[in-house]
């Protein structure tokens, strides 16, 4: 029996007349890498924000790590990690200070912080950069560091909002190795992306069009279902039906 960590039922978000996310229902299982795809403006970010407790749903139900998104946002926050589209570490702090700060606000003890940060820095091969300002790191490293910081407190689920935007293919590959590694440890990965090769790496993929989930399955079965040989094509078949323009 697979353990469900995210469960939504007709989750909806309205902004006035505009329905950003329209009755989406899905489940995500523990340790899974769940790809959350959709064109710009399809409602991905809105959905993700509701799941993170950054935005209150207009209607519908959702449970994250067993906690209700309406009432138990505090518990949800303790159990999730989040990495946003924008690079979101402090550029004017050093690598080490960033790790200590984010670990600190998640309530890690000094000892935990010390071992964790040492571990992390060796893992990332940043030993010589640990005391340098984050601003001086290349983008690829920043993103990898960002991800490591997002899972520093060992969350049950980590939400990644287009984590590899603007990163070169080699670094992207390395980034995905880190994602696999985290998933092997039992961390559930909820990731949005525009890169269809990345969609192939996911265990299961959902594709959103105009606020609704139009397809949800493993990449393999989706390709069968849409009779195409690439996720790129599957995505294109679905996304061109969209009536909403960009943003």
């Amino acid at each position: 029996m697979k353990e469900t960590v995210i469960k939504t039922d007709k989750l909806t978000k309205r902004f006035g007349d505009f329905i950003a996310t329209n009755e989406i229902s899905f489940e995500v299982y523990k340790g899974e890498i769940f790809g959350f795809l959709g064109a710009n403006g399809a409602g991905k970010t809105t959905a993700m924000r509701m799941l993170c407790g950054l935005s209150t749903p207009s209607s519908g139900k959702a449970e994250i790590a067993g906690f209700d998104v309406y009432k138990q946002t505090e518990q949800i926050k303790k159990n999730i990690g989040y990495m946003s589209q924008k690079f979101s570490l402090y550029e004017d702090l050093t690598v080490l200070e960033n790790i200590r700060f984010f670990g600190g606000i998640y309530g890690l003890t000094d000892l935990q912080l010390k071992t964790k940060s040492e571990e992390l820095i060796t893992q990332l091969g940043l030993a010589s950069e640990a005391k340098k300002l984050v601003a001086s790191l290349p983008l690829g490293w920043k993103q990898k560091l960002s991800f490591s910081v997002a899972i520093l407190h060992e969350p049950k689920i980590v939400f990644l909002d287009e984590p590899t935007g603007g990163v070169d293919p080699i670094t992207r590959r390395q980034f995905w190795d880190m994602i696999y590694e985290a998933s092997n440890r039992g961390i559930t990965i909820f990731v949005t992306t525009h890169y269809m090769d990345e969609a192939e790496y996911c265990n299961r993929v959902s594709i959103m069009v105009d606020g609704k989930i139009e397809a949800l399955d493993t990449p393999h079965r989706l390709k069968e279902q849409f009779k195409s040989d690439s996720m790129d094509d599957v995505f294109y078949q679905l996304a061109r039906k969209a009536t909403r323009s960009d943003n």
């Binding site: 407790g53 950054l54 402090y90 550029e91 998640y106």
Partner: peptide
């Protein structure tokens, strides 16, 4: 810089 989002997602 978007760090506010990260802070608000944190406990």
């Amino acid at each position: 810089t978007g760090t506010m989002e990260i802070l608000l997602v944190s406990p």
